[in-house]
């Protein structure tokens, strides 16, 4: 027994948790202005968007989404969208669905705003890539709930911590697929740009990004899907929407209400997935790829 105790004593006590706690405490005291600013910014984005999406009658919105689906994909998809969203509107949890949509759009928008430039930088520099990749791994494998704790600490309960936790959680595939897409661009095509005297900036904008766009759009799609998967968790910190429907049902053991919330999430996911997918398919280089397959 003595030996076991001694061996255990040999392990140093690493206070990583305390360190993190201290860092968070310090940030909270000294960076109040920053967090307030961020909170105001996110609120200013989500609030009006929710208002916009919920302003028209549900039936009008359903028809708008159906038209979008028809235009971007096919009349079949348009019809499916109308039926699916019609079901949601009929449950009736339309307003919650729209505020979830707003949350997803804002968080994935912010995530992409960071992810795409970071992806561009790490596609150009191996060293930057070596630094960023482990961070991305950490962000993806850390349980999503863990982000909520400091988020509540900084921003209190509400939409903002939910949105920011979603941003962090959904960002990695955006970075990874941007990097992948850019690295996959034919080296000889890039070299041709250099050989004809194009600047690196021009090569990035005119050649690399357009050619990487289908892959980047896959990243956008993934970011949106991950953001949607966070909504239930975000609901726990008071972000509202479908997350709230589901968590409330969970705490009150209302099987039916929980099921309704779940179905609405699934329908929203399918619509968003197919819509972003077809936007990716409409890019010039995706068309070029199809032409290549035909030939």
């Amino acid at each position: 027994m003595n030996i076991v105790e001694r061996l255990n004593d040999m392990l140093p006590y690493v206070e990583i948790g305390n360190g993190f706690q201290t860092a968070v405490d310090w940030s909270r005291t000294n960076l109040t202005a920053l967090f307030d600013g961020i909170a105001a910014f996110v609120d200013a984005l989500v609030g009006p968007l929710v208002d916009l999406l919920t302003a028209p009658p549900a039936i009008v919105m359903v028809l708008i989404f159906a038209g979008l689906g028809w235009w971007l994909r096919s009349w079949k998809f348009g019809l499916g969208t109308a039926l699916g969203l019609g079901l949601v509107a009929g449950m009736p949890i339309w307003n919650q669905t729209m505020s979830t949509l707003a949350l997803v759009l804002v968080s994935s928008g912010l995530a992409l705003l960071i992810a795409i430039p970071v992806g561009i930088v790490i596609s150009e520099s191996r060293r930057a890539s070596a630094v960023v990749r482990p961070v991305l791994d950490l962000m993806q494998t850390m349980p999503a709930f863990v982000y909520l704790i400091p988020a509540i600490f900084f921003f209190g309960v509400g939409v903002v911590p939910g949105a920011l936790a979603t941003v962090v959680f959904s960002m990695p595939p955006g970075v990874r697929l941007t990097e992948l897409g850019l690295r996959q661009v034919d080296r000889e095509v890039v070299e041709a740009g250099e050989a004809f005297g194009a600047s690196p900036w021009k090569i990035l904008l005119r050649t690399k990004l357009p050619l990487a766009l289908p892959t980047i759009m896959t990243g956008v799609n993934q970011v949106i899907m991950l953001a949607l998967s966070m909504v239930v968790i975000a609901g726990m910190v008071g972000a509202g929407g479908l997350g709230e429907v589901i968590t409330t049902a969970l705490f009150r053991a209302q099987v039916g209400a929980g099921f309704e919330g779940g179905v609405a999430v699934v329908i929203l996911a399918v619509v968003l997935d197919r819509l972003t997918d077809s936007i990716g398919g409409r890019t010039a280089s995706a068309k070029a790829q199809r032409a290549m397959q035909k030939a």
Partner: peptide, 13 residues
């Protein structure tokens, strides 16, 4: 100087 490449290096898009 201009250059012509083995695998053409055209911009597919």
């Amino acid at each position: 100087m201009s250059m012509v490449f083995q695998h053409f290096a055209l911009q597919p898009h």
